[in-house]
Design a protein around this nucleic acid. Structure first.
Length: 358
DNA sequence: GCCATCTTCGTGCAGAGTGA
DNA sequence: TCACTCTGCACGAAGATGGC
Protein backbone atom coordinates (compact mmCIF):
# COMPACT_ATOMS: atom_id res chain seq x y z
CA UNK A 1 0.00 0.00 0.00
CA UNK A 2 1.33 3.43 -0.90
CA UNK A 3 1.76 6.29 1.54
CA UNK A 4 -1.11 8.19 -0.04
CA UNK A 5 -3.41 5.22 0.28
CA UNK A 6 -2.60 4.60 3.93
CA UNK A 7 -2.99 8.28 4.80
CA UNK A 8 -6.48 8.38 3.29
CA UNK A 9 -7.74 5.56 5.43
CA UNK A 10 -9.02 7.45 8.53
CA UNK A 11 -11.27 9.78 6.55
CA UNK A 12 -12.57 6.89 4.47
CA UNK A 13 -13.51 4.94 7.57
CA UNK A 14 -15.36 8.03 8.82
CA UNK A 15 -17.16 8.32 5.50
CA UNK A 16 -17.98 4.64 5.63
CA UNK A 17 -19.44 5.00 9.10
CA UNK A 18 -21.68 7.90 8.03
CA UNK A 19 -22.88 5.97 4.95
CA UNK A 20 -23.64 2.88 7.04
CA UNK A 21 -25.80 4.85 9.45
CA UNK A 22 -28.26 5.72 6.62
CA UNK A 23 -29.22 2.20 5.49
CA UNK A 24 -28.59 0.54 8.85
CA UNK A 25 -27.24 -2.87 7.66
CA UNK A 26 -25.51 -5.26 10.06
CA UNK A 27 -22.09 -3.95 11.25
CA UNK A 28 -20.01 -6.69 9.54
CA UNK A 29 -21.79 -6.42 6.14
CA UNK A 30 -21.62 -2.64 6.29
CA UNK A 31 -17.90 -2.69 7.08
CA UNK A 32 -17.20 -5.07 4.19
CA UNK A 33 -19.19 -2.91 1.73
CA UNK A 34 -17.52 0.25 2.98
CA UNK A 35 -14.07 -1.21 2.64
CA UNK A 36 -14.93 -2.36 -0.91
CA UNK A 37 -16.19 1.14 -1.78
CA UNK A 38 -13.13 2.70 -0.27
CA UNK A 39 -10.88 0.39 -2.29
CA UNK A 40 -12.71 1.34 -5.51
CA UNK A 41 -12.49 5.01 -4.67
CA UNK A 42 -8.79 4.70 -3.97
CA UNK A 43 -8.33 2.96 -7.30
CA UNK A 44 -10.21 5.74 -9.12
CA UNK A 45 -8.24 8.43 -7.28
CA UNK A 46 -4.96 6.73 -8.17
CA UNK A 47 -5.97 6.45 -11.82
CA UNK A 48 -7.10 10.08 -11.88
CA UNK A 49 -3.79 11.12 -10.37
CA UNK A 50 -1.94 9.09 -13.00
CA UNK A 51 -4.01 10.69 -15.77
CA UNK A 52 -3.33 14.13 -14.34
CA UNK A 53 0.41 13.51 -14.33
CA UNK A 54 0.29 12.25 -17.91
CA UNK A 55 -1.82 15.23 -19.01
CA UNK A 56 0.43 17.66 -17.17
CA UNK A 57 3.46 16.26 -18.94
CA UNK A 58 1.69 16.60 -22.24
CA UNK A 59 0.56 20.12 -21.39
CA UNK A 60 4.09 21.19 -20.45
CA UNK A 61 5.35 19.91 -23.79
CA UNK A 62 2.42 21.50 -25.63
CA UNK A 63 2.82 24.81 -23.78
CA UNK A 64 6.51 24.96 -24.49
CA UNK A 65 5.96 24.24 -28.18
CA UNK A 66 3.28 26.92 -28.36
CA UNK A 67 5.52 29.28 -26.43
CA UNK A 68 8.29 28.96 -29.04
CA UNK A 69 5.81 29.55 -31.85
CA UNK A 70 4.34 32.53 -30.11
CA UNK A 71 7.78 33.99 -29.38
CA UNK A 72 8.74 33.36 -32.99
CA UNK A 73 5.88 35.55 -34.17
CA UNK A 74 7.95 38.61 -33.30
CA UNK A 75 10.94 37.60 -35.45
CA UNK A 76 9.74 38.63 -38.92
CA UNK A 77 8.09 41.71 -37.48
CA UNK A 78 10.94 43.21 -35.51
CA UNK A 79 14.12 41.19 -36.12
CA UNK A 80 14.48 40.17 -39.75
CA UNK A 81 11.96 39.79 -42.51
CA UNK A 82 14.00 37.53 -44.78
CA UNK A 83 17.07 36.08 -43.06
CA UNK A 84 17.00 32.60 -41.54
CA UNK A 85 17.36 32.44 -37.79
CA UNK A 86 20.07 29.83 -38.33
CA UNK A 87 22.01 32.28 -40.52
CA UNK A 88 22.00 34.87 -37.74
CA UNK A 89 23.22 32.31 -35.21
CA UNK A 90 25.88 30.93 -37.56
CA UNK A 91 27.28 34.39 -38.15
CA UNK A 92 27.53 35.00 -34.42
CA UNK A 93 29.19 31.59 -33.93
CA UNK A 94 31.61 32.38 -36.75
CA UNK A 95 32.59 35.65 -35.07
CA UNK A 96 33.09 33.91 -31.77
CA UNK A 97 35.44 31.46 -33.52
CA UNK A 98 37.44 33.71 -35.86
CA UNK A 99 36.71 37.24 -34.62
CA UNK A 100 35.20 40.18 -36.51
CA UNK A 101 38.28 41.76 -38.07
CA UNK A 102 37.23 41.33 -41.69
CA UNK A 103 33.52 41.16 -42.25
CA UNK A 104 31.41 41.70 -45.33
CA UNK A 105 28.35 43.96 -45.38
CA UNK A 106 26.09 40.90 -45.44
CA UNK A 107 27.83 39.40 -42.42
CA UNK A 108 27.43 42.70 -40.63
CA UNK A 109 23.71 42.69 -41.39
CA UNK A 110 23.42 39.16 -40.03
CA UNK A 111 25.23 40.08 -36.84
CA UNK A 112 22.98 43.11 -36.28
CA UNK A 113 20.05 40.76 -36.84
CA UNK A 114 21.45 38.40 -34.22
CA UNK A 115 21.69 41.28 -31.75
CA UNK A 116 18.09 42.26 -32.52
CA UNK A 117 17.06 38.62 -32.04
CA UNK A 118 18.58 38.59 -28.57
CA UNK A 119 16.76 41.79 -27.75
CA UNK A 120 13.45 40.20 -28.70
CA UNK A 121 14.14 36.72 -27.27
CA UNK A 122 16.55 37.38 -24.41
CA UNK A 123 16.29 33.83 -23.12
CA UNK A 124 17.53 32.37 -26.40
CA UNK A 125 21.25 32.04 -25.59
CA UNK A 126 20.87 30.50 -22.13
CA UNK A 127 18.01 28.25 -23.21
CA UNK A 128 19.78 26.90 -26.29
CA UNK A 129 22.99 26.28 -24.28
CA UNK A 130 21.09 23.85 -22.02
CA UNK A 131 19.40 21.96 -24.85
CA UNK A 132 20.11 18.69 -26.61
CA UNK A 133 20.58 19.20 -30.34
CA UNK A 134 17.23 17.58 -31.16
CA UNK A 135 15.31 19.88 -28.82
CA UNK A 136 17.30 22.83 -30.09
CA UNK A 137 16.44 22.00 -33.71
CA UNK A 138 12.80 21.57 -32.72
CA UNK A 139 12.83 24.96 -30.97
CA UNK A 140 14.27 26.64 -34.07
CA UNK A 141 11.64 24.97 -36.21
CA UNK A 142 8.84 26.26 -33.98
CA UNK A 143 10.34 29.75 -33.87
CA UNK A 144 10.48 29.73 -37.67
CA UNK A 145 6.90 28.48 -37.94
CA UNK A 146 5.72 31.22 -35.62
CA UNK A 147 7.67 33.81 -37.55
CA UNK A 148 6.27 32.76 -40.93
CA UNK A 149 2.70 32.35 -39.74
CA UNK A 150 2.70 35.86 -38.25
CA UNK A 151 3.88 37.23 -41.58
CA UNK A 152 1.08 35.33 -43.34
CA UNK A 153 -1.49 36.68 -40.89
CA UNK A 154 -0.30 40.23 -41.43
CA UNK A 155 -0.32 39.80 -45.21
CA UNK A 156 -3.87 38.56 -45.11
CA UNK A 157 -4.95 41.34 -42.71
CA UNK A 158 -3.61 44.02 -45.06
CA UNK A 159 -5.04 42.29 -48.09
CA UNK A 160 -8.49 43.19 -46.84
CA UNK A 161 -7.70 46.54 -45.29
CA UNK A 162 -5.55 48.19 -47.94
CA UNK A 163 -8.07 48.06 -50.82
CA UNK A 164 -10.70 49.59 -48.48
CA UNK A 165 -8.31 52.32 -47.47
CA UNK A 166 -7.21 53.06 -51.07
CA UNK A 167 -10.81 53.20 -52.25
CA UNK A 168 -11.80 55.47 -49.37
CA UNK A 169 -8.78 57.79 -49.64
CA UNK A 170 -8.29 58.04 -53.40
CA UNK A 171 -11.62 56.91 -54.86
CA UNK A 172 -10.03 55.27 -57.92
CA UNK A 173 -12.12 54.41 -60.92
CA UNK A 174 -12.48 51.44 -61.16
CA UNK A 175 -12.08 50.79 -57.43
CA UNK A 176 -9.62 48.24 -56.09
CA UNK A 177 -11.24 44.82 -55.76
CA UNK A 178 -10.50 42.91 -52.49
CA UNK A 179 -10.97 39.60 -54.21
CA UNK A 180 -8.79 40.34 -57.20
CA UNK A 181 -5.14 41.10 -56.47
CA UNK A 182 -4.59 41.74 -60.18
CA UNK A 183 -6.69 44.92 -59.82
CA UNK A 184 -3.91 46.34 -57.60
CA UNK A 185 -0.40 47.40 -58.59
CA UNK A 186 0.47 49.73 -61.42
CA UNK A 187 -2.65 48.83 -63.44
CA UNK A 188 -4.69 50.71 -60.86
CA UNK A 189 -4.22 54.48 -60.87
CA UNK A 190 -4.40 54.88 -57.08
CA UNK A 191 -2.14 51.94 -56.25
CA UNK A 192 0.22 52.98 -59.06
CA UNK A 193 0.46 56.50 -57.63
CA UNK A 194 1.36 55.12 -54.20
CA UNK A 195 3.91 52.65 -55.60
CA UNK A 196 5.44 55.18 -57.99
CA UNK A 197 9.03 56.27 -57.18
CA UNK A 198 9.04 59.81 -55.85
CA UNK A 199 11.37 61.12 -58.55
CA UNK A 200 8.78 60.25 -61.20
CA UNK A 201 5.52 62.10 -61.72
CA UNK A 202 2.66 59.60 -61.82
CA UNK A 203 0.28 62.30 -63.11
CA UNK A 204 2.33 62.46 -66.32
CA UNK A 205 0.71 59.97 -68.71
CA UNK A 206 4.04 59.23 -70.44
CA UNK A 207 5.59 58.32 -67.08
CA UNK A 208 2.58 56.17 -66.22
CA UNK A 209 2.82 54.28 -69.50
CA UNK A 210 6.59 53.94 -69.13
CA UNK A 211 6.28 52.40 -65.69
CA UNK A 212 3.57 50.02 -66.84
CA UNK A 213 5.70 48.93 -69.81
CA UNK A 214 8.88 48.81 -67.66
CA UNK A 215 10.50 51.02 -70.27
CA UNK A 216 14.06 52.36 -69.96
CA UNK A 217 14.21 55.19 -67.46
CA UNK A 218 10.95 54.11 -65.80
CA UNK A 219 12.04 50.86 -64.18
CA UNK A 220 10.80 50.67 -60.58
CA UNK A 221 13.43 49.30 -58.24
CA UNK A 222 14.09 49.21 -54.51
CA UNK A 223 16.63 52.02 -55.01
CA UNK A 224 13.91 54.72 -54.99
CA UNK A 225 11.49 55.50 -52.19
CA UNK A 226 7.89 54.80 -53.18
CA UNK A 227 5.37 57.61 -52.72
CA UNK A 228 3.31 55.71 -50.12
CA UNK A 229 6.15 56.20 -47.60
CA UNK A 230 5.79 59.98 -47.59
CA UNK A 231 3.69 62.29 -45.49
CA UNK A 232 0.61 63.21 -47.53
CA UNK A 233 2.07 61.02 -50.30
CA UNK A 234 4.25 63.80 -51.70
CA UNK A 235 8.00 64.17 -51.55
CA UNK A 236 10.06 67.33 -51.56
CA UNK A 237 12.37 66.79 -54.55
CA UNK A 238 15.02 69.05 -52.97
CA UNK A 239 14.95 67.16 -49.69
CA UNK A 240 13.87 63.55 -50.13
CA UNK A 241 14.18 62.81 -46.43
CA UNK A 242 11.51 65.35 -45.51
CA UNK A 243 8.29 63.55 -44.60
CA UNK A 244 9.79 60.14 -45.33
CA UNK A 245 8.23 57.24 -43.33
CA UNK A 246 5.55 59.53 -41.96
CA UNK A 247 2.71 57.70 -43.65
CA UNK A 248 1.82 54.02 -43.63
CA UNK A 249 0.13 54.55 -40.28
CA UNK A 250 -2.79 52.37 -41.31
CA UNK A 251 -0.59 49.38 -42.04
CA UNK A 252 1.39 49.89 -38.87
CA UNK A 253 -1.71 49.97 -36.71
CA UNK A 254 -3.27 47.02 -38.52
CA UNK A 255 -0.21 44.93 -37.77
CA UNK A 256 0.94 46.13 -34.38
CA UNK A 257 -2.23 47.28 -32.63
CA UNK A 258 -5.34 45.90 -34.33
CA UNK A 259 -7.17 45.97 -37.67
CA UNK A 260 -10.08 47.82 -36.07
CA UNK A 261 -7.77 50.53 -34.75
CA UNK A 262 -6.38 50.90 -38.27
CA UNK A 263 -9.89 51.61 -39.55
CA UNK A 264 -9.93 54.70 -37.35
CA UNK A 265 -6.90 56.12 -39.12
CA UNK A 266 -7.80 58.97 -41.44
CA UNK A 267 -5.01 58.59 -43.92
CA UNK A 268 -1.69 59.82 -42.63
CA UNK A 269 -0.06 61.28 -39.54
CA UNK A 270 2.80 60.98 -37.13
CA UNK A 271 3.08 57.37 -36.11
CA UNK A 272 5.80 57.85 -33.51
CA UNK A 273 3.59 57.16 -30.50
CA UNK A 274 0.85 55.04 -31.99
CA UNK A 275 1.53 52.09 -29.74
CA UNK A 276 1.06 54.12 -26.59
CA UNK A 277 -1.69 56.23 -28.05
CA UNK A 278 -3.70 53.29 -29.29
CA UNK A 279 -7.40 53.80 -28.58
CA UNK A 280 -7.62 50.67 -26.49
CA UNK A 281 -4.47 51.45 -24.57
CA UNK A 282 -5.85 54.91 -23.80
CA UNK A 283 -8.74 53.47 -21.90
CA UNK A 284 -6.28 52.15 -19.40
CA UNK A 285 -6.02 55.44 -17.43
CA UNK A 286 -8.05 53.85 -14.64
CA UNK A 287 -5.53 51.07 -14.36
CA UNK A 288 -8.11 48.58 -15.60
CA UNK A 289 -6.89 45.70 -17.72
CA UNK A 290 -7.31 46.24 -21.43
CA UNK A 291 -7.11 43.89 -24.34
CA UNK A 292 -3.54 43.17 -25.38
CA UNK A 293 -2.44 43.83 -28.95
CA UNK A 294 0.47 42.50 -30.99
CA UNK A 295 2.91 45.20 -29.90
CA UNK A 296 2.24 44.37 -26.24
CA UNK A 297 2.46 40.66 -26.84
CA UNK A 298 5.85 40.93 -28.50
CA UNK A 299 6.95 43.54 -25.92
CA UNK A 300 7.50 46.24 -28.53
CA UNK A 301 7.18 49.43 -26.54
CA UNK A 302 8.08 51.84 -29.30
CA UNK A 303 8.36 51.93 -33.07
CA UNK A 304 11.65 50.40 -34.21
CA UNK A 305 13.51 50.69 -37.54
CA UNK A 306 12.96 47.02 -38.26
CA UNK A 307 9.24 47.28 -37.58
CA UNK A 308 9.03 50.24 -39.98
CA UNK A 309 10.89 48.25 -42.64
CA UNK A 310 8.56 45.30 -42.08
CA UNK A 311 5.44 47.44 -42.43
CA UNK A 312 6.84 49.14 -45.54
CA UNK A 313 7.41 45.76 -47.21
CA UNK A 314 4.00 44.46 -46.17
CA UNK A 315 2.29 47.61 -47.40
CA UNK A 316 4.12 47.56 -50.69
CA UNK A 317 3.16 43.94 -51.15
CA UNK A 318 -0.49 44.74 -50.36
CA UNK A 319 -0.49 47.56 -52.92
CA UNK A 320 1.18 45.46 -55.61
CA UNK A 321 -0.49 43.02 -57.96
CA UNK A 322 1.65 40.13 -56.72
CA UNK A 323 -0.60 37.37 -55.40
CA UNK A 324 1.84 35.49 -53.20
CA UNK A 325 4.71 36.54 -51.01
CA UNK A 326 8.02 36.61 -52.89
CA UNK A 327 11.48 38.15 -52.63
CA UNK A 328 11.45 39.94 -55.98
CA UNK A 329 8.54 41.64 -57.74
CA UNK A 330 9.62 42.48 -61.29
CA UNK A 331 12.63 44.77 -60.86
CA UNK A 332 11.85 45.45 -57.24
CA UNK A 333 13.86 43.46 -54.67
CA UNK A 334 12.06 43.26 -51.32
CA UNK A 335 15.13 41.92 -49.50
CA UNK A 336 17.20 44.94 -50.54
CA UNK A 337 14.29 47.29 -49.88
CA UNK A 338 13.94 46.01 -46.30
CA UNK A 339 17.70 46.26 -45.75
CA UNK A 340 17.91 49.78 -47.17
CA UNK A 341 15.21 50.98 -44.76
CA UNK A 342 16.89 49.29 -41.79
CA UNK A 343 20.27 50.78 -42.75
CA UNK A 344 18.65 54.17 -43.22
CA UNK A 345 17.77 54.17 -39.52
CA UNK A 346 20.47 52.01 -37.97
CA UNK A 347 23.44 53.29 -39.95
CA UNK A 348 22.61 56.96 -40.24
CA UNK A 349 25.91 58.75 -41.04
CA UNK A 350 26.84 61.47 -38.57
CA UNK A 351 25.19 63.02 -35.55
CA UNK A 352 22.82 65.29 -37.49
CA UNK A 353 21.46 62.43 -39.55
CA UNK A 354 21.06 60.28 -36.45
CA UNK A 355 19.13 63.02 -34.65
CA UNK A 356 16.83 63.33 -37.66
CA UNK A 357 16.30 59.57 -37.69
CA UNK A 358 15.45 59.60 -33.97
C1' DG B 1 7.21 14.32 -53.98
C1' DC B 2 8.83 17.83 -51.08
C1' DC B 3 8.78 22.19 -49.24
C1' DA B 4 7.39 26.91 -48.55
C1' DT B 5 3.72 29.81 -48.51
C1' DC B 6 -1.03 31.27 -48.34
C1' DT B 7 -5.79 30.85 -46.90
C1' DT B 8 -9.46 29.51 -44.14
C1' DC B 9 -11.54 27.99 -40.15
C1' DG B 10 -11.88 26.83 -35.32
C1' DT B 11 -10.48 27.84 -30.58
C1' DG B 12 -9.49 30.33 -26.58
C1' DC B 13 -8.78 34.58 -24.24
C1' DA B 14 -10.16 38.95 -22.52
C1' DG B 15 -12.84 43.13 -22.37
C1' DA B 16 -17.47 45.11 -23.12
C1' DG B 17 -22.25 44.99 -22.71
C1' DT B 18 -26.53 43.63 -20.56
C1' DG B 19 -30.05 42.15 -17.54
C1' DA B 20 -31.60 40.36 -13.16
C1' DT C 1 -22.87 43.45 -8.10
C1' DC C 2 -22.69 39.39 -10.45
C1' DA C 3 -23.33 36.12 -13.99
C1' DC C 4 -23.89 35.48 -18.47
C1' DT C 5 -23.44 36.52 -23.41
C1' DC C 6 -21.36 38.98 -27.12
C1' DT C 7 -17.56 40.62 -29.67
C1' DG C 8 -12.94 41.29 -31.35
C1' DC C 9 -8.74 39.56 -31.61
C1' DA C 10 -4.49 36.51 -31.78
C1' DC C 11 -3.19 32.28 -32.68
C1' DG C 12 -2.70 27.47 -34.41
C1' DA C 13 -3.98 23.67 -37.39
C1' DA C 14 -5.05 21.87 -41.59
C1' DG C 15 -5.74 21.99 -46.29
C1' DA C 16 -4.77 24.21 -50.80
C1' DT C 17 -1.56 25.93 -53.97
C1' DG C 18 2.54 26.69 -56.50
C1' DG C 19 7.48 26.26 -57.42
C1' DC C 20 11.36 23.34 -57.72
Amino acid sequence: MSQAESSSQPSESLAASSESSESMPTPTVAAAAASDNARQRRKIAALEEKLQVLEAGHMVKQRETNYFMSQGRAIRRIVTLFDDIEALISENDRRCDVGDDEVTIDQDHLQLGYIALNGVIPWFISKSADMEYEDYAQMLKKLRQGADSARGDDTSKLKGLVPDWVNREFKPNPPVDHEDKYSCGFVNDACGKLLCPTELDWNNLIVRAGIRDRADGYVVTEMSWPTFLYDKYTADQDNLQEGLFKSALLAFKAIFTSPSSAKEVDGEGDGANIIENNRRAKRDFSGKKVKTHVAQIIKMHKVSPRSIAYVACQLRFALSAVTSWRLVDGDFDYVQFWQIIVDFFEKAPGRVARRKVD
